[in-house]
C-alpha cells in the first residue's frame, strides 16, 4: 500500500528535466553518427583517400575544415567516411551477441534445470576470457582484418547480455500471468513471442545500447593495434594509430579528432543507454 503510493510519487521523468535533456542530446548525437554511417560517403567534401603531397599536416582552412593528415588527405572527409567502418563492426558484434544472448537467456530461463546450469556455466567460462585479448589473439592467428575479431567479440559479449536478460526472464517467467497462459493451453511459442519477448524488449534495448559503446571501443582498439581495418581505409582506431607519429612532428590533429570522435560516440551511447534504462525500466526497478 505504502510502497505503491511512494512509487507513484517518485519523480517520473518528463521531457524538459535536465536529465532528460541529456538523454535527448545523446540520442541526437547517436542519430547523427548513424546518419553519417549510412550517407557519409555521399556527403564528404573531398575523396577520403585522395593524397595531396604538397599539403601535408595542414591546419584548419576553408577547404580543409579540420586540416589534413600526414599524406595531405582531408581529415573531415576521412572522419565522416570512417563512421561506417567504425560503427558497422560494433553493430554486428552487438546484433549477434544480443540476438543469440536473448535466445540463450530465454531458453535457460524457460526450461531451467540442467539446461540453465549448462548455459550459465558455459557463459561463466566465456566471461573468464578477457574479450579484447581473445579478439586480438584470434586476429593474430587468422590474420589481420575485422571478420575474426568481430566473431570473437560477438562471443565475448554474449555473457554481458545473457546474464542480465536471463535473470529478468526468470523473474518474468515466474509471474502468474505466464502460468495463467500455460493453464489456458497457450502454445509456448506464443507465450515467448507475444508476451515474454515484448516485455523483455526494453531491457534488451538498454543492454544493447550500453554494450555498443564498449564494443566500439574494443573494435577501435583492435584496429589501433593494426589487426583490424587496414590502411588506407579510414577507420577511427586506425586513424588514431596512424596519427601517432605526427604528434611528435607537432601535428596532433589526426589522432586528436579520431580520438574525439570515438569518445563522443561512446559517451553518447552510454548516456543514451542510462537514459533509456531510467525511462523504460524505471517503473519496474
Amino acid at each position: 500500500m505504502t510502497s505503491a503510493l511512494f512509487a507513484r510519487t517518485a519523480s517520473k521523468p518528463r521531457a524538459g528535466r535536465p536529465r532528460d535533456r541529456v538523454t535527448l542530446a545523446a540520442g541526437c548525437v547517436v542519430g547523427l553518427f548513424v546518419f553519417l554511417a549510412v550517407c557519409g560517403p555521399l556527403l564528404v567534401p573531398h575523396a577520403p583517400n585522395a593524397v595531396d603531397p604538397l599539403n601535408v599536416h595542414a591546419g584548419p582552412s576553408a577547404t580543409h575544415l579540420l586540416g589534413t593528415d600526414d599524406s595531405g588527405r582531408d581529415l573531415l572527409s576521412r572522419l565522416i567516411a570512417g563512421t561506417r567502418a567504425s560503427l558497422a563492426a560494433p553493430a554486428v558484434v552487438i546484433a549477434v551477441s544480443t540476438t543469440l544472448g536473448t535466445l540463450l537467456a530465454l531458453v535457460a530461463a524457460w526450461f531451467g534445470g540442467w539446461l540453465d546450469r549448462f548455459v550459465s556455466g558455459a557463459l561463466d567460462v566465456v566471461f573468464g576470457f578477457p574479450g579484447l585479448i581473445m579478439a586480438v589473439l584470434v586476429a593474430a592467428v587468422f590474420g589481420a582484418g575485422l571478420t575474426a575479431p568481430v566473431v570473437a567479440l560477438s562471443i565475448a559479449y554474449l555473457p554481458l547480455i545473457t546474464r542480465v536478460v536471463r535473470s529478468a526472464a526468470i523473474k518474468e517467467r515466474n509471474l502468474p500471468y505466464v502460468s495463467a497462459l500455460q493453464l489456458l493451453g497457450a502454445p509456448t511459442a506464443r507465450i515467448w513471442l507475444r508476451h515474454l519477448l515484448p516485455n523483455l524488449g526494453p531491457l534488451v534495448l538498454v543492454q544493447a545500447t550500453i554494450g555498443f559503446g564498449y564494443a566500439l571501443l574494443d573494435v577501435a582498439a583492435i584496429s589501433f593495434l593494426g589487426l583490424g581495418s587496414q590502411p588506407p581505409d579510414p577507420e577511427w582506431g586506425l586513424m588514431v594509430a596512424n596519427g601517432a607519429p605526427s604528434i611528435l612532428a607537432g601535428a596532433p590533429q589526426q589522432s586528436l579528432y579520431a580520438g574525439l570522435a570515438i569518445l563522443l560516440v561512446v559517451v553518447a551511447f552510454n548516456l543514451l543507454g542510462t537514459g533509456l534504462s531510467r525511462r523504460l525500466l524505471g517503473e519496474q526497478a
Binding site: L175, P176, Y177, S179, L183, L184, G185, N199
Partner: peptide
C-alpha cells in the same frame, strides 16, 4: 493442453502480476 484448460483454471493471489502489463 487446451482440453485440460477447459477442465481447470486458476486465479492467483497477486492481481498486479496476474496480467501481462503490456
Amino acid at each position: 493442453r487446451r482440453a485440460r484448460g477447459r477442465q481447470i483454471q486458476m486465479v492467483f493471489q497477486d492481481p498486479y502480476s496476474s496480467l501481462d502489463r503490456r
